[in-house]
């Protein structure tokens, strides 16, 4: 597979390296230093940095502006874009805006429902869905056309990603859902946080059975647990999250002051095990408001130094 964009993430994946990405949540304010500081902590340990798009439907600094801050630092951003807040005009427009700053990666998502955020009385848009956003970006890039059919002068050059949750319901369409995203034109996947490794490996087996791992790069998603309380919360409260009892028990059996360290250890062990899984092309480390731990995880998981291109 030859490269289709100038994306560094794409290059690393196509060259067969295990890629490492991470993410930064923009601030609930306009101070760009927040983004810069987070990025500074992790920049030498990851190949690209996702910027979330009003995650959990809480109003924040926009993903696009935050990505521009990263770009101005010489870093490689992944623009997350949810279909919740903008119609097809606004999304195509933002894609062009991002492309004008040579942002080369996009992650197409539907977004958390607004009832979870700070504007539960607002409308959601969902003019198109995440699957159709993938198609939209591919149309704009590959055919140089708007959805309306007109030609785009200087089309965007973006490596197109999406999310996948191997643990959500309905179970019988977990693999077909990924196949559908591949058919829509997705090129890389960042998965939901993986704690149930057995179930993830079973999903990967089914992905391989259909040959999908040869059509899309799959980055295994990992979030280190800070405490037994967080593990319980993720297990019981977060829809689509599969946290096995032994993870909760392992953290609960650890003295409180050592739980964070144990959480990091679990994360590193998971990466080491998943490195051996055929079809896993890299890792997406989501250390939520805990970005300072990313270097340690990357180092100890044997993923440092990052390839220089």
């Amino acid at each position: 597979m030859s490269e289709k964009t100038p994306s560094k993430l794409e290059k690393i994946l196509r060259q067969g390296h295990l890629a490492v990405t991470s993410e930064c949540g923009p601030p609930r304010g306009s101070d760009p230093e927040v983004i810069r500081e987070k990025a500074e902590m992790i920049k030498d340990y990851v190949d690209a940095i996702n910027i979330t798009d009003n995650q959990t439907a809480m109003t924040r600094m926009c993903s696009l502006a935050s990505c521009i801050h990263l770009k101005l630092m010489g870093l490689e951003p992944v623009l997350q874009m949810v279909t919740r807040d903008r119609n097809r005009i606004a999304m195509q427009s933002d894609i062009l805006g991002a492309a004008s700053f040579d942002i080369y990666n996009i992650l197409c998502l539907s977004g958390d429902h607004q009832s979870f955020g700070d504007c539960p009385t607002g409308q959601n848009v969902h003019d198109i869905d995440s699957m159709q956003l993938i198609q939209t970006v591919r149309l704009m890039r590959d055919e140089g056309k708007f959805l309306g059919g007109d030609e785009i002068a200087r089309p965007p050059r973006m490596f197109v990603g999406a999310a996948a949750n191997p643990f959500a319901d309905p179970f019988e369409i977990r693999v077909p859902r990924l196949a559908k995203k591949v058919a829509a034109g997705v090129e890389f996947i960042q998965t939901q946080c993986i704690y149930n490794l057995d179930r993830f490996e079973e999903w990967m087996k089914r992905i391989r059975d259909r040959g999908l791992h040869e059509k899309v790069f799959i980055l295994a998603g990992l979030t280190p647990m800070k405490s037994a309380g967080m593990a319980r919360y993720m297990k019981n409260r977060v829809p689509g999250m599969d946290v096995p009892d032994e993870i909760v028990k392992r953290l609960s059996d650890t003295p409180k002051e050592k739980q964070a360290e144990e959480g990091i250890k679990i994360c590193i062990e998971s990466i080491q095990r998943l490195k051996e899984v055929e079809g896993v092309s890299g890792f997406h480390i989501m250390a939520i408001e805990w970005e300072e731990k990313v270097p340690e995880i990357v180092r100890q998981a044997g993923l440092y130094p990052r390839p220089s291109l």
């Binding site: 919740r84 429902h113 969902h126 995440s130 699957m131 159709q132 959500a168 369409i173 829809p239």
Partner: peptide, 11 residues
């Protein structure tokens, strides 16, 4: 979310 191509991750 009136999704036309399948469930979101919250099902």
């Amino acid at each position: 979310k009136r999704l036309l191509n399948g469930p979101c991750g919250g099902s």
